[in-house]
């Protein structure tokens, strides 16, 4: 670009830019819209042809989903496992994130390596030996057992995210609290915690979504107490197709809400965790 662009060329560029943004948005939204149409169609209509391009707002598929044997239990299991994962990964991960952001200690690099290693490893594969281990300890096919595995998945993220969140709170604020009569603990609860709480909530939600979406380990580790993903996976080949779509819709729904809730933090979280 040697000369200044002519008004026409700039207009064309502008038009191209807006069109691409709209197309890319459509690329994300249209498939979701198709799923919505299928979910809100009567079971017969799901297999009809050609498809209507507007939802019929028939609750047949969803009510079939709700009454399908074992489905509600699977949904409850998913919520419980994800909730437990959320609590565990923050309770265990946040202290380490704090330690990484505030202290220089011997072995810090080794510790970071361990965290990164877990991120670079196909973790669901560990479900295989864990299945054996859990049978021995009686954790097999339990909510807690699966939540522990999902926590392993979520912990590297919890550590890195809380690390970057804590790094965003100036050390001076804590030091000021110490000089004003706080111990390390009270300085944390009175100064750091109130400031960090929204961020912690965001990373907790992130942990929830990781667990909610996980398929492989859930399928390997549960038999009677299936989570929703594991249940759908097992039923993929046999279930009627409208059940799949209704299940997929239920899977997607919390994701939409959660990403909206944490959208402010998504980028800040990765900005520092990257380096």
């Amino acid at each position: 670009m040697t000369a200044v662009a002519t008004p026409d060329a700039r207009k064309a560029g502008r038009w191209l830019y807006v069109t691409s943004v709209v197309l890319l948005c459509a690329w994300v939204i249209v498939p979701l819209y198709f799923l919505l149409i299928n979910t809100l169609s009567a079971p017969e209509d799901v297999q009809s042809y050609p498809k209507a391009f507007f939802p019929a707002f028939d609750m047949g598929s969803l009510s079939f989903f709700v009454t399908f044997n074992g489905m509600i239990d699977a949904l409850l299991n998913s919520i419980m496992v994800a909730g437990l994962t959320m609590i565990l990964s923050i309770a265990i991960g946040a202290p380490a994130g704090y330690a990484l952001s505030r202290f220089d200690f011997r072995g810090k690099e080794l510790f970071r390596l361990l965290i990164l290693l877990t991120r670079a490893f196909p973790l669901p594969l560990l479900a295989l030996p864990l299945a054996v281990m859990f049978i021995r300890t009686g954790l097999d096919d339990t909510i807690i057992g699966l939540a522990l595995v999902h926590t392993t998945l979520a912990i590297p993220f919890a550590v890195l995210i809380t690390f970057s969140l804590f790094s965003g709170i100036p050390m001076e604020l804590e030091e000021a609290a110490w000089t004003l009569g706080c111990t390390r603990l009270t300085a944390f609860t009175k100064v750091v915690l109130p400031l960090i709480l929204p961020g912690i909530a965001a990373s907790a939600i992130f942990a929830f979504v990781i667990s909610w979406n996980e398929v492989f380990a859930a399928a390997v580790l549960t038999i009677e107490n299936r989570t929703l993903t594991a249940f759908l996976l097992v039923k993929l080949s046999e279930a009627p197709i409208h059940l799949k779509f209704a299940g997929g819709f239920i899977l997607v729904l919390p994701a939409l809400i959660f990403i909206f809730a944490v959208r402010k933090y998504l980028f800040a979280m990765w900005g520092i965790a990257n380096r």
Partner: peptide
């Protein structure tokens, strides 16, 4: 725009597979 583009971040691979099944199945979109 960023929110719309990051929606799939929260969607599991299983759900994504089901969504695209709605498109590619025989009586699909």
């Amino acid at each position: 725009i960023l929110y719309v583009w990051t929606i799939p971040l929260g969607i599991s691979d299983l759900a994504a597979g089901i969504i695209w099944l709605a498109i590619f199945e025989q009586s699909g979109f």
